[in-house]
């Protein structure tokens, strides 16, 4: 039963989880707190994509071959700005408080995002734009484009964090803010940049998923849970670990659901998480001790 369709499905799901987990892990590194609204920002990104795509189709005459790709920069930009607003609301007022306070403020933001989506867009699911038109790349074209886009973004993020001055500053302020400030890195600005980046990534995830998986106000919780699990299994705060964790979850879910049942896949995933934490309290790929959540 496990054929190419299953593998592509697992890849698509893995790409989705990985993008959600990346933004999640960036914020953990920057402020040491779990962003419980990360999944809701994925959902919000989906709605931004829906709005942008409908604007595009109303205001352009040419038949767009790849509407998703065309609006991608727009979505990234819009979500980065929203990310700045998010940090101003949920992080800056609480920066001198324990990470738990930020954790709770993100829960509040999550509630507001979910309910705003319901109030302004309604409860009906909506379909976002395709990445590339089906005529161009066959039935699986969108899914393959989704996986490819995720891979490109993960590679780009890796390059950004490891290969640029900006990335080094970002990592330095995450690892030791006081030391970073002492050597002249503008830590606050770096943290704000991290928020913008993390939420832009969530937006990208939202755009990529909005066609394949539709978008609904209540979608956030699932993405947040999967991101949380991916990051924990991958080793708290480790970016590559988060991607590996996300892929592992997606493959596990898809394979168990294909062989046995979806309900069991979901249940076993949580049992697996508990088993892993029992055997390895520091996570599957984790080595170092993390900070307080």
């Amino acid at each position: 039963m496990i054929g190419s369709e299953t593998l592509i499905a697992a890849g698509g799901l893995g790409a989705a989880y990985a993008l959600a987990a990346l933004g999640f892990v960036l914020i953990i590194n920057a402020v040491g707190a779990v962003n419980f609204a990360q999944g809701d920002f994925v959902m919000a990104g989906g709605y931004v994509a829906v709005v942008a795509a409908s604007w595009l189709s109303q205001n352009t005459d040419v038949a767009v071959i790849a509407p998703g790709l065309v609006i991608l920069p727009l979505v990234l930009l819009a979500m980065a700005v929203i990310g700045l607003g998010f940090s101003a609301l949920a992080y800056l007022p609480l920066r001198r408080r324990p990470p738990m306070a930020v954790f709770i403020s993100t829960i509040a933001i999550g509630i507001m995002l979910r309910q705003s989506a319901n109030a302004f867009f309604g409860a009906a699911p909506q379909a976002g734009p395709v990445m590339v038109a089906p005529g161009l790349a066959g039935n699986n074209g969108h899914q393959l484009a989704m996986i490819a886009a995720a891979l490109v973004v993960i590679a780009a993020l890796h390059g950004l964090l490891n290969g640029t001055q900006f990335g080094r500053h970002l990592r330095a302020s995450a690892q030791d803010p006081q030391m970073a400030a002492a050597v002249g890195i503008p830590v606050t600005r770096m943290i704000l940049a991290t928020f913008a980046l993390a939420i832009a990534l969530a937006g990208l995830a939202g755009l990529l998923l909005s066609h394949q998986y539709l978008v609904q106000p209540d979608d956030g919780t699932t993405y947040m849970l999967k991101a949380y699990i991916a990051v924990t299994l991958g080793g708290w705060g480790r970016i590559n670990g988060a991607v590996a964790g996300a892929l592992a979850i997606a493959v596990f879910e898809t394979v168990v659901a294909t062989l046995v049942s979806q309900v069991l896949a979901e249940m076993l995933l949580y049992v697996l998480v508990l088993a892993v934490l029992w055997v390895r309290p520091q996570g599957l790929f984790g080595k170092i001790e993390g900070r307080r959540a």
């Binding site: 779990v34 849970l225 924990t232 998480v273 934490l277 307080r292």
Partner: peptide
């Protein structure tokens, strides 16, 4: 378990 791992474990339960 440490805080965030504890939170996730209880969430899984």
């Amino acid at each position: 378990l440490k805080t965030h791992y504890f939170a996730l474990a209880t969430l899984a339960i």
